[in-house]
Amino acid sequence: MFEAGNHVELSFGSVSPSVSGTGPGSAGASTPTGNVAQSYTQVGAAYKRQLKESTSIAIIFDQPFGADVNYADAGYALSGSAASVTSTGLTLLGRQILDEHFSVHGGLRYVSVKGKYNRPQTSLPAYSSTYSSGSGTGFVVGGAYERKDIALRLAVTYSGEIDLALPGSAGSLTTTFPESFNVDFQTGIAADTLLLASVRHVNWNGFSLNDDDPNAGTLVKYDSDVSTYSIGIGRRFSDQLSGSLTIGYEAAKDEKVSDLGPTDGNVSYAIGDAYTLENGVKISGGIRYVDFGDAVTKLVNATFADNSAVGLGLKIGYTF
């Protein structure tokens, strides 16, 4: 929403995680889990239209939530357990500039989710279900303060809850995706140099995925909110070329985690570059390394340690 004039962009991301641990085997002895997290890709697109000097609208497509966990190694107690979730989101936003410094933005957000779940016999009965697409709508509202003379911008955005119900081949799944708050900040600290910072807080405390089939029950449950922080430096080397370095941090909750999400907190390091062509096309790319925090799982007390992921991203934007 803060791009000048009319703007369109496409983005692509690829993530390769390595998440493994040790836990009880089918015969009782400690057994490696193998890598339980699968590689995945993400795509996104956005179009912004400047209606008047002070009024603009935008439509944004993304894939906000996802999971792909598979315990495939034979001999492990949960071998055969798997879960996959895919989602798509559409956000329609409007922005109104109030004066030289202040603006407000807001709109509606639509999310559609589908997935699969399989659990072999453990201390719980075996269960399997394929969930058809379910969708819901929420709202987005926020505001920003800017000082263009020092390249300062402070933007705050609130996204409301979204209720979802997914019909399943066995039981049906219901959940409420939680509200979230985003704070994004930048300011010039030297010629052609920006300080960048952000905070994202999601009210995951109390979140659960509940299947109405008594053999399945609650598939996932979280007991703590999550805040993710990042800070970095952006540098313009020329009118065409710029780069950035960013460090991210998400605190560990120090509590047992779901066997379908066996990590606890993370630290990340990212480097990115952007090049603007003479025709107005801007090509951005970057790489991020994520160091996951160690975790112990709820169901079988497996220990996951020394895990990580590498993500690659590419974005092509055009301002006209």
Rank of each mutant, 00 (worst) to 15 (best):
E3F: 02
E3Q: 15
N6K: 04
E9L: 07
L10S: 05
S18V: 11
P32H: 04
V36H: 06
L51R: 11
T55Q: 13
I59R: 00
I60P: 11
I60K: 07
D68C: 00
V69C: 04
N70E: 13
A72P: 10
A72C: 04
A82E: 13
T86A: 09
T88W: 12
T91P: 09
L93S: 09
L93W: 03
G94A: 13
L108Y: 12
V111I: 15
V111L: 13
K114P: 07
K116Y: 12
Y117V: 07
R119W: 02
L124H: 07
L124R: 14
A126W: 01
Y127G: 00
Y127F: 05
S132L: 08
T137W: 11
F139N: 11
V140G: 11
V140T: 14
V141Y: 10
R147I: 14
T157V: 07
S159K: 10
G160C: 10
I162V: 14
S169Q: 09
T174D: 11
T176G: 07
F177A: 00
F181V: 15
T193A: 04
A197V: 04
A197G: 12
S198D: 05
S198T: 01
F207Q: 03
L209V: 08
L209P: 02
D212M: 06
G232I: 10
F237G: 11
Q240A: 14
T246L: 04
E255I: 12
E255R: 13
V257F: 07
S258F: 08
D259E: 14
L260V: 12
V267G: 06
S268A: 03
G280L: 03
A295D: 01
T303L: 09
D306W: 09
N307C: 03
L312P: 04
L312F: 15
L314F: 05
Y318F: 12
T319F: 06
